[in-house]
Amino acid sequence: MGLSDRILNIPIPVVSFLMILTIALPMVTPIGLPIKIGSMTKAGYDIILGLSEGSVVLMSYGVSPAGVTEVGTGAKALVYHVLSEGHKLILVGPAVDNPMFVEKDIPPIANMLNKQYGIDWVHLGYYAGVEMGLAAILSDISSVYTTDHRGNKLQDLPLMQEVKGAADIDLHICVTFSADMPSQLARQVAAPYGIPIILLCDGVTGTIATPYYPTQIQSIMMSMRGSAEYELLIKRPAEATGGMDSISLSYLYLTLLLVITNIATFYKRGEKKEER
């Protein structure tokens, strides 16, 4: 078996194991490569900076167990930025897992920034129906929620006295893993109401969302890269920034593997032509 044959037939478990190793190594010994801020992430940062103080931000906190490192850290960075700029935050969740992460992530940030629940931020909780639910919330929040996630009646929350629907919302931030979400946001948020949208999503959703950028979705933060960039923009590097070293090493490994594999493929093709 020649070298090119060996390269073309490396056992898959070996390929996968090496991939895991290259992800794990920087977790033990970080490299600290610089991360350049992309224009799509910067756009989101500038939007939040450009809002007048006291603006209302509706955030769909779609963090779930799968995406704690991927988008969870970016979501926390966004919440920190919104609250530190003096804006109001209303949190909803289109998936059943989301409320748990809101209750775990947001109170420490709010307490750090001396933000009061009910005045500066409110957690409304899970809503069913995804697109239908989003449409109903934007049309009239009280048609979906009569209480917040903690059981408080909406009329007892000062923030919810000011916010009834889309007309009172200045920005929508969507954290999601759903590949359908960009088109749903375009249909339910951008097209009818013209509300600016910041999307923090996984890689697949990010690529699918690019046709809507920048006219309907004004900022797309893709996966851990987007989260890391935002952490650096607000000068609070966390897990996403640290995780980019693992991405660097693993991607370098895969790139080299694919290049070598393709060189071997061409070599084999050349050999076959010679034999003929």
Partner: peptide
């Protein structure tokens, strides 16, 4: 070209999730 770009981003997503899992083991 679009699917190639998408594949790179899918890999980013899955790698990020693996980092979470490795964080539990290491």
């Amino acid at each position: 070209v679009g699917f190639g770009a998408n594949a790179a981003n899918i890999l980013l997503s899955r790698s990020a999730r693996t980092i979470t899992m490795l964080g539990y083991i290491m």
